[in-house]
Design a protein around this nucleic acid. Structure first.
Lengths: 149, 149
DNA sequence: TTAAAGAGTTAGAATGAGTCTAAACTGCAA
DNA sequence: TTGCAGTTTAGACTCATTCTAACTCTTTAA
């Protein structure tokens, strides 16, 4: 069982929430701690189960609410693959997602600025994009622990 | 009302279905014709409603079945944006999708081979990708009719 | 020409992720 | 201390999709 934030992370959370006009609550703290503790792109259900270990009364609706709030404040990203359950990711650096066909695991893939640039360059004039989502589907041969997040 | 394929398209459909061990049926023909007639990335429901104009007895389940068959035979691609209804696209050339935040419309964006290559190059060793999905979210300023598919 | 088999279609029931609602709770401010 | 705005909660609800079982159609085999 994990589930308490160090000062640094708590301050970050509080600040980001504040900017979005939201408050730091015990539930939000626990949910955020869950996301930071295990960066494996959990589903809402997975977050719920992990968070309940340290806060048994927590409700599923609250987990949905917390995650939505975090997305609104730019603290986490939603990750969708086809129509599977939405997953959540606290990695704010620009990155793509690689989904292992066999294990279902999702891995972050760093996105160098020049690749972002070449992607933006394919948009015809008049197309103005705020968000670019890139996802790979395939297999990972070596189960390289360095890239298992 | 649209809904009959010219010889050429019917032959293509029949051939692709055959390769996947599937047959050409009247329902599949109508559903495929709907996809070709209006390349606006319709949802299953939209396909269903359009197809029923020429085949009133058609059932929703069949539309789901047909589209699944087409995807299996490589005839159409599924397009997912967040958790909205899946949309279908008969454009087989490599392309990304641009979703207009305001209208919800989906536009195809051509993907030059060098961009595909630079994307593949960001995968660390051991990551082997079969499918890459790229989607932009944003606004289209000029409603340029050349790019409205 | 019938019979059996196999594929495809159909309507409606079931599933399940996500959203909504209304009541209860919390913390701060008058 | 009362009020109230924001938050949490349980459970009902929605709706895209999947499942099921019956039915139809076509093909093959006797």
């Amino acid at each position: 069982m994990i589930q308490s934030l160090n000062e640094h992370n708590r301050e970050d959370l509080q600040e980001a929430l504040g900017k979005g006009g939201q408050k730091l609550t015990p539930q939000r703290e626990v949910v955020f701690a869950v996301l930071l503790a295990q960066r494996d792109h959990p589903t809402v259900d997975e977050v719920f189960n992990r968070a309940r270990e340290s806060m048994p009364g927590l409700s599923l609706a609250t987990v949905y609410n917390c995650l939505e709030t975090f997305v609104g404040c730019g603290l986490v990203r939603q990750v969708n693959h086809e129509r599977e359950s939405t997953r959540y990711c606290p990695n704010l650096a620009p990155h793509a997602h690689f989904r292992d066909k066999e294990t279902g695991q999702v891995h972050d893939i760093e996105l160098p600025p020049e690749v972002m640039k070449s992607l933006r360059s394919i948009l015809p004039p008049g197309f103005d994009s705020e968000v670019i989502e890139i996802s790979f589907l395939g297999r990972t041969k070596a189960n390289d622990p360095l890239h298992s997040n």
